[in-house]
Every structure is written in C-alpha cells, then in structure tokens.
Design a binder for these strands. Structure first.
Lengths: 155, 155
DNA sequence: TGCTCCATGTCAGAAGTCTGACATACAGTT
DNA sequence: AACTGTATGTCAGACTTCTGACATGGAGCA
C-alpha cells in the first residue's frame, strides 16, 4: 500500500520485475481461461500441438516449460477427455507423436481467443517502440541465462 | 530445435517470450539455490523481509507473487527452522509482523550472493541499452495487464 | 451504535508439478 | 558387433501451491 521506495532495491531489480510481469500475465491468462475450464499449461500444450502437429511429449514439455513427467500427466488427462490422440506404438524410437482431435481443436479455438484478448490488452498499453524493445531485450536475457546453465541437468 | 518459422506465431508472441525468459531465470535461480537447500519462493520471502522488516504474511505473499495461504505455509516452515519470528499476538488488527532471525540473515546472505551471480550473468549478456529498454517495457507490460484485471468482461 | 465492506490469518482438501528411478531405443565410437 | 552416451516414456512418491471456507479485526457510513 505504501512504498517508501528508498531502501527497496528489489524495485530496481530486472529479475524481480521480470517475475512480476510474468506473474501478471499468468494471472490474466488464468482469469480468462478459468471459465473455459482450462489452465495455462493446458492451453499451452494445445496451442503447441496446433502449430506443430505430431510433437512428442518431451518436446511439448520443453515448449510449455514443464518437466516431461508433468507433461505426461497432462497428456493422459487430455487424452482421456478426448482432446488429443497419441499413437499406441512409436513409429520410430520411443517417441509418441501427439495430435489434436477435432474436439481439442474446438476447445482450443475458444481458449485461443481468450488468450489473445489478454495479449492484445497487454500490447495496447505499450508503444510500438516498447514492444520492439521488449522483444529484443527479453531475447537477450534468455540467451544470457542459457549460456552458463550446463552444470545441473542435461540439455 | 528447428523452426519452420511459417506457422509458428508462438515464436513471435511477446507473452510466450516473457514466459520463456521468466522460466529461464527461475531455472537458473533454482540451480544455484538448490545446493543451499532453498527454493525461489523461500529466498524471495527472506529477501523481502530483509528489505522491509515487519511485513505481514499477506504483504509477503503479494511480494513473492503467491497466495497468502501458500505464504502462510512457507512462514510456518521458516519459523520452525528458526529463520523468521512472528509475533504471537497482533499489535493491531490481525496483522502479524514477521522478522528475520540472525540465523535467517546468515542463510539469506549466502542465498543472496548466489542469486546475485545469476542476475549479474543475465545483465552481462545485455547491452546497457537493452537493460534500460527491458526495464521500461516490462513496467509498461505490468501496467497494461493490471489495468483491466478486475473487469474480466465476458470477452 | 449498528451495519456493511474489506483485509488478514488459518485450516482443510484438491490439484499440479517436481525429483528419483527404471526400461527402452537410437546414434556414435571402438 | 559391443559399448557408451543421450533421449524418451512412464511409474511412484513427495512437495508446493492453489481454491474454498471460516472467524476475526478495523474502517467507513447511515
């Protein structure tokens, strides 16, 4: 409620601000997705599949920024609800291609519109310059962070 | 790994990029925090308390971008470990001020250094212009998203 | 004063995500 | 061909966070 601002270097931290922005976006997305019975991860998975049909579970996990175990759980859920289909046998290796069903496509259409409205609102409050700056600097951030990661987990 | 580029508008979405950057930052932070036995939320709470002693649970929750229920759970945990102390009685209203213990301060010092190294790495990969651009545009994003939050009209 | 509205702290249960572990499949090397 | 390394899918269990609900304390107003 009351910011003195003086001693708070969290307020000047780019990392903190990034988290704040991401949190605000997520909250806004969840707000419009909830009436549709969907979560953000849910939607991300479907959107990914719409744009790149046949993605594997692991690829979807990377695209949605969760572990492949979490994505596996989600996929089982989505398959049970008839939103996606997975090959019973792997055509090659162990990779199981996943695809949207017509029903999944319908659900996604509504969700996509809802999410788009959020992104539109976000962009509407920014100048053209700010949008370009945001894109460039965020890409730079990702690049920097990925560079020195190697230590812990693979890939 | 390979972008066909044509149909993937996720790659040009500012929202997706924001999520990607945030995810990369979070992963990098968790990687350096794990050896210290801390999580990001854990650290956020302590850092908040160091900079604004006496914050209430709800205020901490907002600062760490979690629900007050989650923060409550975390605070009980932190109190049991002797990292923070909470007044048994509310001096005013129901608000329970929380403070760091000397031990909490020591733990935070190490965590803070680790997190700072991540932020330094992130900033090092960006030009001075990019940093300023990132700050300005992210603030703009947050502002836009917060504007229409309560009014989740039936868009 | 009494009433309404809002914020806080907390409990309980549900849901989601993560880590750890294992078996399998392919590529590259020897 | 055999071995090593990497990647995938999956199961199991633990942990974290969330939603829902309730009681309490204070501010504002009739």
């Amino acid at each position: 409620m009351e910011q003195d601002g003086a001693s708070i270097h969290l307020e000047t931290s780019l990392g903190y601000l990034l988290k704040e922005a991401s949190s605000a976006l997520r909250a806004a997305m969840e707000e419009v997705l909830r009436p549709l019975g969907m979560t953000v991860t849910h939607y991300s998975c479907l959107e990914l599949l719409a744009q790149r049909p046949g993605l594997s579970g692991s690829e979807l996990a990377r695209g949605a920024f969760v572990t492949r175990q979490s994505m596996n759980t989600l996929l089982q859920h989505l398959e049970r609800e008839g939103h996606v289909t997975r090959a019973a046998e792997a055509p090659v290796g162990k990779v199981l291609p996943t695809r949207l069903t017509p029903r999944g496509r319908r659900v996604l259409a509504r969700a996509s519109a809802a999410v788009r409205s959020v992104e539109v609102r976000m962009l509407a409050g920014m100048t053209e310059t700010e949008r370009a700056d945001a894109f460039r600097s965020l890409q730079s951030m990702v690049r920097s962070l990925r560079e020195g990661e190697g230590a812990a987990d693979g890939a």
